[in-house]
Amino acid sequence: MGVLDSSTLDPRTFRTVLGQFCTGITIVTTTDDGRPIGFACQSFAALSLDPPLVLFCPTKGSRSWAAIERTGAFAVNVLGEDQQETCARFGSRELDKFAGVEWSPSPLGSPILTGGSAHVDCTVETVHDGGDHFIVVGRVHSLGEINGERPLLFYRGQYTGIEPDKTVPAPWRDDLEAFLTATSSDTWL
């Protein structure tokens, strides 16, 4: 495959090329008039340590995003590798995605799914245009405990996981730990 310029980009090719980048899978949730709402989201990332910010990118037509925008609060649930069925449910167009799903409210009231690897509880800080998506920046208010579960990953259009015997510490990890140690824990909340 040769180099393509933006005027000749085929959406399928674009998606295939970007599918070479492995992502984690999250469920972004909120409650709207007491009703739990959420959607599967691969476009989630840490943005800033100080202040603590994350981002996610919902499609502009998303009903779940409309609810998050109304409430101003959301939780990001990081899925464990055994939660493929949960991911499929929240990635569907099913109206009641929470049917049969256990959850409890976060400190801000957003649903925290039982069995996830971790969660991040946030309020909407800013929203930016991102083509057919929005770029939503969230301010982190609290974090859930990490349960040690390996994450559910998505790669080339398929679920995948980490092979524990192939994990290697990143060489910059020590620099990050030094930064975190120097940063007061009071700035996180």
Rank of each mutant, 00 (worst) to 15 (best):
S110T: 10
K97M: 08
P164R: 14
Y159G: 01
E69Y: 02
W172L: 13
C87V: 08
I135S: 01
P36G: 15
G100A: 02
A118W: 05
R89Q: 10
S117L: 14
R35E: 11
C122W: 01
V101A: 07
S106H: 07
H119K: 05
T86L: 09
H119T: 02
E85S: 04
A88H: 03
A75P: 05
A88I: 07
R12G: 07
V54D: 00
D10C: 07
W103D: 10
D82R: 00
A73M: 08
S104V: 12
P105K: 15
Q83T: 01
S106V: 08
G100D: 05
W172H: 12
L108P: 03
S92R: 01
D32W: 13
T126F: 06
K97D: 00
G100V: 06
S106Y: 03
P107S: 00
A40H: 02
L49Y: 01
T8D: 09
E177H: 14
V140W: 06
L189R: 15
G116Y: 01
W103F: 15
L108H: 05
T29S: 14
V76R: 04
F134G: 03
V101H: 05
D132T: 12
T16A: 12
D33K: 15
G138T: 00
C41D: 04
T26S: 11
G161P: 07
L176P: 11
Q84S: 00
Q20V: 07
W103P: 09
T8N: 08
S184Y: 04
C87D: 11
Q158A: 10
R63S: 09
L55Y: 03
N147S: 12
G144R: 04
A46P: 01
T16D: 13
R70V: 13
C122T: 05
E94G: 10
K166V: 09
S104F: 10
Q20T: 14
D121I: 10
V127R: 07
F154C: 03
C122A: 07
D33N: 15
T31W: 13
A66R: 12
S62L: 05
D32E: 13
Q158T: 10
L176Q: 12
C122K: 06
D174P: 08
K60S: 00
L153N: 05
P11C: 12
A182R: 12
A40C: 08
T167Q: 13
G109K: 14
A99I: 00
S142R: 06
G38Q: 08
P52W: 03
P164K: 14
M1R: 08
R150M: 13
I25N: 04
D10G: 09
A67M: 03
G38H: 06
R156T: 10
C87T: 09
I135T: 05
W103T: 15
T114F: 01
G100N: 01
E177W: 15
F56L: 02
L108E: 01
C41R: 02
I68N: 00
S7H: 13
H133N: 07
V101S: 09
E149V: 13
L152N: 05
Q84D: 03
E125Q: 09
E85D: 07
I146L: 15
